[in-house]
Amino acid sequence: MGLVLDFATTTAILFIVTSGLMMIFGVMQIVNFAHGAILAIGGYVAFVITRVGIPSLYGCFFAFIAGFLVGALIERFVVRPLYRRPLDAILATWGLGIVIIQVIVMIFGRGVQLVESPLQGTWNILGTEYSSYRIIMIPVALCIGGVIIALLNGTRFGIKTRAVIMNENLAESLGINSGMIRFISFSIGAGLGTMAGFFITPLSSVDPYMGVAWLTNAFMLVMVSGHSFLALAGACLVFGSIQVLVSIYVNPVLGGMAISVLAAATLRIRPKGFSHD
């Protein structure tokens, strides 16, 4: 049972962390390498909010808004000129990640900040004591996934976005402002990133480099999933479970790189990855 919970919670956490990256990659085919830094912003939002004394339940909205604004700035000034140069966009966003991290260092210092977990202790699930905060991550992931799918499938914005994903030129000729769609998706993606940073802080510490450790795994999961959120959930489940298994039964270090290696191998064999089209 402990193992099943490890699988489920690891999947949920991976999904929360990758969804923002996916939003951006799915719509713009651009990988936001500043995602690590954006996660860190979320962590610091959590830190500031608990200091100010706002209940942490509302914190995730603040985190989202902060990320949305940062994302909007990044899109407007850095990413927009680079749409035609996707490899340069990787580099520019990576450089931006360095800048954001250094700015965080200058404001908050190098040190580790601590954020009280809003949910202490454990719950008993079918006889296994398990960290309640990790369990809470499962419904949180389901919520995020649900909201994104509802947004993409049930709203005008979603329809336009999917049109841009499928055929940008056609979408433009139908009068959809694809620049606007990209702008909004990037901002939402960054917002999801900070929100993820907010959610993972109780599990780890808040320090400027907290996001970097997540970056490559998140990146590889998104690569494997193409542009479907369901595929992403599947990839998180499969690779997350393998990571847990390898970490427990073989070696935690190998477990740490399991996702990257398996995702790269998957891409070599099936360049389209998990997405079926």
Partner: peptide, 17 residues
């Protein structure tokens, strides 16, 4: 160290863009 990293980072992004 931090300012130097920041300068490198900003320089890098500007050059790329």
């Amino acid at each position: 160290p931090f300012v130097w990293q920041l300068i490198l980072g900003i320089g890098f992004v500007s050059v790329i863009v």
